[in-house]
Design a protein around this nucleic acid. Structure first.
Length: 507
RNA sequence: GGCCCCGUCGUCCAGCCUGGUUUAGGACACCGGCCUUUCACGCCGGCGACACGGGUUCAAAUCCCGUCGGGGUCACCA
């Protein structure tokens, strides 16, 4: 059943849909790549089409193999499986632009032959000088056209002289170029005056293409039907349209997604945010929470649900539900979502997810481990908080300040009395499980004239070393009789020590 | 600065296309309360927005225009 708001204007048979994610391997895997990839994936799957991964490594200076591998790993971690890509192959390969340079060169030559592009011999120095002057004159920095009308003879002789050259797009000085966007302007065309469009470099002097040439040629050759990319590309789109026209090709549909933002609304950046997917994985974020959160940044479910999985997004996907406004990357909300997903996990599953975050040997298949993970589950916001909640199970050197042992509205001697009585009582407990341990604790409160809060807090700190811990009696059960009693004795000793030193405890 | 996009609570989102059902709804965060052995979870409540100005209309968050604001982009990077 089709969604009621679905636009019937895609103009492409469902099964023909092909989208691609085209990351540049110039750094750690970026959240923006996952964000765009998510929408690519959701749309492709929704439409029954194909999702392609293409590596845009045309920047020889900055592209690295390590970065490419990390991007592939991150996409897999998230579960954004692609149908075609450099490591899985496919009928439109190669999927790495550095392996397609002949194709671009050939196409660039074609454009020169048809008068849509020209050789340019201007040096970088001259160009930057030119821009400087243009800005001084408050003119928009644009190529001044020096090489635009060079004669064929001059071009040939300079080429023969091995003078470095680039290929530039010959943008018409008149007229306008327009396109319609799937997500913005409510279907009205976005119009650009050609005189504002620069003669973009298509092929660099190192023989590599720029993004503009490579993405157009590849998208066409790979039969991409819909280009889903970030909003920062809107201004380049008319150049791309011109290229399609110059080649005599049909342009794809465009969908420009809103850019992820820093708190100050600027484009998300590593200076102001964690932008590496690896960082989120290493800090205990679940891939399903990450995906759900990223989805929320640009998409809203029909019934307004906030928590939904990839399959639900695929099912409900519609360009009508894609937002245009500038979403701020709100880590607080990500953490909340992560907690939601952690709580939904089964204990055994959670143990496996926790394993990379726990020191070796701390998580086994035993019942005690299951109990321990069970009591911290609803307290975890991220997997890397495992240690924060469980450290006291794995050491006998509790590190805490004696003062924290003394509950509010209680004196040192009173605390000592409480712990003394507790030690006596617990030494008599044989069945060391939560129920009897709690009964004993409550009986203690009745006999002593102290409140539950006072008694339990003193016990809590003695047992766990902190005023904030998992449930006390469950923790005692997990710790075991011997170690629990030892901690009570240890606490008593610490109190005695302090009394001896100061003679008096704060009251 | 030129060009382009965007503009509902602090943040994310619903409502806008197909004006009235809205004293503008939900979520995160924050504050208060309940539950409770702490923390957390859960539950209840509170705070809090249609950028502004015109116009169209019986009626505008919703349609039109202008202003203002925010962002993006102006590389032999993508």
């Amino acid at each position: 059943m089709p969604a009621k708001h679905e636009r019937p204007t895609h103009g492409v048979a469902m099964s023909n849909v092909r989208v691609r994610i085209a990351p540049s391997p110039t750094g750690p895997p970026h959240v923006g790549t996952a964000y765009i990839g998510l929408f690519d994936y959701a749309f492709a799957r929704h439409a029954g089409g194909k999702f392609v991964l293409r590596i845009e490594d045309t920047d020889q200076e900055r592209s690295t193999k390590e970065s490419e591998e990390a991007i592939l790993r991150a996409l897999r971690w998230l579960g954004l499986e692609y149908d075609e890509g450099p490591d899985v192959g496919g009928p439109y390969g190669p999927y790495r632009q550095s392996e397609r340079t002949d194709i671009y060169r050939e196409h660039a030559m074609k454009l020169v032959a048809t008068g849509h592009a020209y050789h340019c011999f201007c040096t970088r120095e001259r160009l930057s000088q030119m821009r400087k002057e243009q800005q001084k004159r408050k003119q928009p920095p644009m190529y001044d056209g020096t090489c635009r009308e060079l004669s064929a003879d001059e071009v040939r002789s300079r080429l023969d002289a091995a003078e470095p050259a680039v290929f530039r797009l010959k943008v018409p000085r008149e007229g306008e170029t327009a396109y319609t966007d799937l997500v913005r302007k409510k279907g009205e065309p976005v119009v650009f005056q050609n005189r504002h469009i620069d003669d973009q470099v298509l092929l660099k002097s190192d023989g590599f293409p720029t993004y503009h040439l490579a993405n157009v040629v590849d998208d066409h050759l790979m039969e991409i039907t819909h280009v889903v990319r970030a909003e920062e590309w809107v201004n380049s789109t008319p150049k791309h349209i011109m290229l399609y026209k110059a080649f005599g090709w049909e342009p794809p549909k465009y969908a420009h997604m809103p850019l992820l933002r820093n708190r100050d609304k600027s484009k998300i950046s590593k200076r102001k945010n964690h932008t590496s997917l690896d960082w989120y994985r290493e800090h205990g974020f679940l891939p399903e929470a990450m995906l759900n959160f990223l989805a929320l940044m640009g998409f809203s479910a029909e019934e307004g649900e906030e928590v939904f999985d990839l399959d639900a997004m695929v099912r409900d996907f519609s360009w009508d539900r894609i937002k245009t406004s500038q979403p701020i990357f709100d880590v607080d909300k990500l953490e909340w979502l992560n907690g939601v997903y952690i709580r939904e996990l089964g204990v055994d599953e959670l143990i496996e997810r926790l394993r990379p975050f726990a020191e070796a040997g701390r998580l086994d298949q035993g019942e005690t481990t299951r109990k321990m993970v069970g009591i911290i589950q609803e307290r975890l916001k991220t997997l890397d908080e495992f240690d924060k909640w469980t450290w006291f199970f794995f050491t006998d050197e509790l590190d805490y300040d004696v003062e924290t042992l003394i509950p509010k509205k209680t004196t040192g001697p009173e605390t000592a009395a409480i712990l003394r009585a507790a030690l006596d009582a617990y030494e008599g407990v044989d069945e060391w499980t939560t129920e009897p341990l709690e009964q004993t604790g409550r009986g203690l409160c009745d006999r002593l004239e102290f409140k539950v809060g006072q008694v339990f807090m003193a016990l809590r700190v003695a047992i766990t070393g902190s005023g904030q811990s998992p449930p006390l009696f469950e923790s005692m059960e997990i710790l075991g009789r011997t170690r629990s009693l030892a901690r009570l004795r240890d606490a008593l000793a610490r109190l005695g020590e302090q009394e001896g030193e100061t003679g008096r405890i704060a009251d």
